[in-house]
């Protein structure tokens, strides 16, 4: 046999595959599905107002020369309640936030805003989650940074916590 070391190759390959499998068991799993729409223009949509007394939301309401946050939420979503004070903090810092209420009812949205405050400039109602699909969004809550020209710049998955507030303000500032 000229190449005895070659006989070890299959074992080495098998060990590599086994090692990969073992690594897969140990490494913490990232279950977040990120949107592939980052860096692209907002898709076209026009949503009716989510409840009485709020303004409707369409894609042309954003990207009018001012960067904004687009917050995807729902009255039935518990982390959305947890992030409400941080949205208020962002609003207090001069950030304009547009909202999309997912799979919601007008009376439930009204009760949610009564209880947790209304930091939104406009709130559209996406009752069939069609816009959520267009955005590549995978759940509630999610927050997008929308640039001055209507480009989707950043996606934050999950509730906004106190430590995310300065980061989001920074992202908005760095766009202009």
């Amino acid at each position: 046999m000229k190449l005895p070391w070659l006989l070890w190759a299959p074992l080495a390959v098998t060990a590599c595959i086994g090692g990969l499998a073992a690594y897969g068991l140990v490494v913490p799993k990232d279950e977040q599905v990120r949107s592939a729409m980052i860096g692209q223009k907002l898709p076209e949509f026009a949503l009716p107002p989510a409840t009485q007394g709020v303004l409707p939301l369409s894609n042309t309401d954003m990207g009018d020369g001012k960067p904004r946050l687009l917050n995807i939420f729902a009255s039935w979503c518990i982390p959305c309640k947890a992030e409400a004070p941080h949205l208020e903090a962002l609003k207090a810092a001069g950030v304009e936030i547009d909202g999309i209420a997912i799979r919601d009812r007008p009376e439930d949205v009204a009760a949610f805003l009564d209880e947790f405050g209304n930091p939104y400039r406009r709130i559209g109602s996406d009752s069939e989650m069609a816009v959520q699909l267009k955005l590549g969004s995978s759940g509630v809550p999610e927050t997008y940074v929308i640039g001055a020209d209507g480009t989707i710049l950043f996606q934050h998955i999950g509730d906004i916590r106190a430590e995310h507030v300065p980061m989001l303000i920074e992202k908005l500032k760095s766009t202009t």
């Binding site: 599905v33 949107s35 592939a36 729409m37 267009k134 955005l135 590549g136 995978s138």
Partner: peptide, 9 residues
């Protein structure tokens, strides 16, 4: 779908 959620979908 892939354009919105990546190959993963």
């Amino acid at each position: 779908m892939i354009k919105r959620y990546g190959e993963w979908v």
